[in-house]
């Protein structure tokens, strides 16, 4: 357990900063998918390394919370460890790697495989909050496009993609439509995780520290990836591949290059361990697909 650092407020940032973030989080939840600007503070962790998610977590967290932090699905990756060290040292809360035990999960680039409950909050770190940035560099203009629901440019972009490549080229960070109103960047989660946002039981909060935006997807909210009638949204294909460690064939896999071969392991390391012990542990099942 890391020792608590002295001389700093509980959860590091001052109460004025927390209050502002809390007000903005409530507005974000009230207007699903809309990016609320906020006065992002500098933290001892670099901009672009999860400071938006971190500021949300620090504003949410209380002494009784149980926290899980992952990066690329893993609890042990250096960045996840670094953020954990910081929060532990400034709050003293319990840290877990068990997805089901956590009250708050902060994540970069993944949603855990197991189904999250309605008393949990998932905080996603966001590098680019603006889904329209790929077609329009200027903030003034993208803000107008959202205001007027003028989304023609991104539809044209996707259409031209299909014409040229017979496939949409966006890998992760696949744009979604939230509650039929706002196009939203789901953060760089793989497409595999995108259906998890739709009608979920959990509250998803998104924080972009460098770009100073907060947004949210409440539970039971319709979240649809942008797709065409004749060109459906498609998740990553792991057909014929299995995790080398737990033998799962239904999880998102990391591809690993070794000297003599190529192999795959689960990206969600905590889930992989559970499956390793008990192959019958359930992952999230997409009820909307059934």
């Amino acid at each position: 357990m890391t020792e608590m650092v002295k001389g700093y407020n509980f959860a590091f940032i001052d109460e004025y900063a927390k209050r502002e973030i809390r007000r903005k989080v409530l507005k974000a939840v009230s207007i699903p998918g809309y990016q609320v600007p906020f006065g992002s503070r500098e933290l001892p962790i670099a901009r672009g390394w999860g400071t938006g998610g971190l500021q949300i977590t620090l504003s949410l967290i209380g002494q009784k919370d149980i926290l899980k932090i992952i990066d690329q699905g893993s609890d042990d990756s250096v960045n996840a460890v670094n953020i954990k060290r910081f929060i532990e040292a400034t709050t003293g809360v319990f840290i877990t790697s068990d997805t089901l035990k956590a009250t708050i999960i902060q994540t970069r680039h993944r949603i855990p495989e197991e189904e999250l409950g309605d008393d949990q909050i998932l905080v996603l770190q966001v590098p680019y909050p603006e889904p329209l940035r790929i077609v329009e560099p200027e903030e003034k203009e993208t803000r107008r496009m959202h205001a007027e629901m003028d989304y023609a440019k991104i539809w044209v972009f996707l259409y031209e993609n299909i014409v040229k490549w017979k496939e949409i080229t966006i890998g992760a960070r696949y744009p979604v439509m939230v509650a039929g109103r706002y196009i939203m960047d789901p953060s760089p989660i793989p497409r595999y995780d995108v259906p998890r946002l739709n009608n979920a039981r959990t509250l998803y909060l998104f924080g972009a520290g460098r770009e100073k935006r907060i947004y949210a997807v409440p539970p039971f909210t319709e979240v649809k990836p942008l797709e065409f009638e004749d060109h459906r949204f498609r998740i990553e294909n792991f057909k014929g591949k299995a995790c080398e460690l737990c033998a799962s064939t239904d999880t998102f896999l990391d591809e690993i290059i070794l000297d003599d071969k190529r192999m795959y392991t689960c990206s969600d390391t905590s889930f992989c361990k559970k499956r390793g012990n008990n192959p019958r542990v359930l992952k999230y099942i997409d009820r909307n697909q059934q």
Partner: peptide, 20 residues
């Protein structure tokens, strides 16, 4: 308690806003 009472109330409010 501006730190801990506020934190608890905020979480209750957030729960309420997330589940109208």
């Amino acid at each position: 308690d501006t730190i801990f009472d506020s934190q608890k109330i905020f979480r209750t409010l957030l729960d309420a806003f997330a589940h109208p």
